[in-house]
Measured scan of single mutants.
Amino acid sequence: MDETGKELVLALYDYQEKSPREVTMKKGDILTLLNSTNKDWWKVEVKITVNGKTYERQGAVPAAYVKKL
């Protein structure tokens, strides 16, 4: 869990989004888990830093590609 009490997951593999509802992640990324009720796809929040600014993006990733921490 992070400092706000939200559950975290670890990306076990790289994943490139294939639709606007998904998010890209790299192996080793730590993501915030938002919903894991679907056994195949979990909704997560990814933090992306671009030019020193951090953005948050929500989307789905394959459940088999992440592990709860």
Rank of each mutant, 00 (worst) to 15 (best):
K18L: 09
S36V: 07
V61A: 02
V50G: 05
E7G: 10
A63G: 04
D40Q: 11
K43E: 15
E17M: 11
E3A: 13
N51I: 02
P62F: 07
T4Q: 12
L8G: 01
L10F: 08
V44A: 01
D40G: 07
D14A: 05
V46W: 06
K6A: 10
W42P: 00
Y65F: 12
P20F: 08
E56M: 15
E17S: 15
M1L: 12
Y13R: 15
E56D: 11
P20I: 08
I48Y: 13
N51Q: 09
S36W: 07
A60Y: 15
V9G: 10
L10Q: 09
Q16R: 09
N38T: 06
G52R: 02
E17W: 05
L34M: 06
K53R: 12
V44R: 00
S19C: 10
P20C: 10
K47I: 12
L31M: 12
V46S: 06
L33H: 00
R57Q: 07
T54H: 08
W41N: 01
N35G: 07
K68C: 10
D29Y: 05
P20V: 09
K43F: 15
M25L: 08
V66P: 04
E7Y: 10
V46C: 09
E17T: 07
P62A: 03
V50N: 07
R21L: 14
E45N: 08
V61W: 02
T37N: 12
G52M: 04
E17D: 03
K27G: 04
E17V: 05
A63Q: 03
L8A: 05
P62Y: 06
T49S: 10
E7K: 08
V44K: 00
T4C: 15
V66F: 04
D2N: 14
Y15V: 01
S19Y: 04
D14H: 04
D2S: 13
L8F: 14
T49Q: 10
A11I: 05
K18G: 07
V66Q: 01
M25E: 02
L31K: 01
L69E: 02
Y55N: 06
Q16V: 14
A60M: 15
L31V: 05
Y15I: 01
K18W: 04
G52L: 04
A11K: 02
E22H: 05
D40L: 12
E22D: 04
G52K: 04
L8W: 13
K39T: 10
V61I: 09
E17P: 14
K39D: 10
T32W: 09
L12D: 00
Q58W: 07
D40T: 12
E7F: 11
M25N: 01
G52E: 06
T54L: 10
Y15N: 01
L31G: 04
M25G: 00
K18T: 11
A63H: 03
T4R: 14
L10S: 03
G52F: 05
A60N: 15
I30V: 11
K18V: 08
L34G: 01
W42H: 01
T37Q: 11
G28V: 03
K43L: 15
N35C: 13
K67Y: 07
G52I: 03
Q16E: 13
A64R: 14
Q58M: 08
D14F: 04
Y13K: 13
K47M: 10
R57T: 07
Y13D: 07
P20E: 13
Q16S: 10
M25Q: 01
N38C: 10
V46M: 09
L34D: 01
E3T: 14
Y55S: 10
V50C: 11
L34F: 03
K18Y: 03
L33T: 00
T37L: 09
V46I: 14
K6C: 15
M25H: 02
R21M: 14
V66R: 00
T49F: 11
N38G: 10
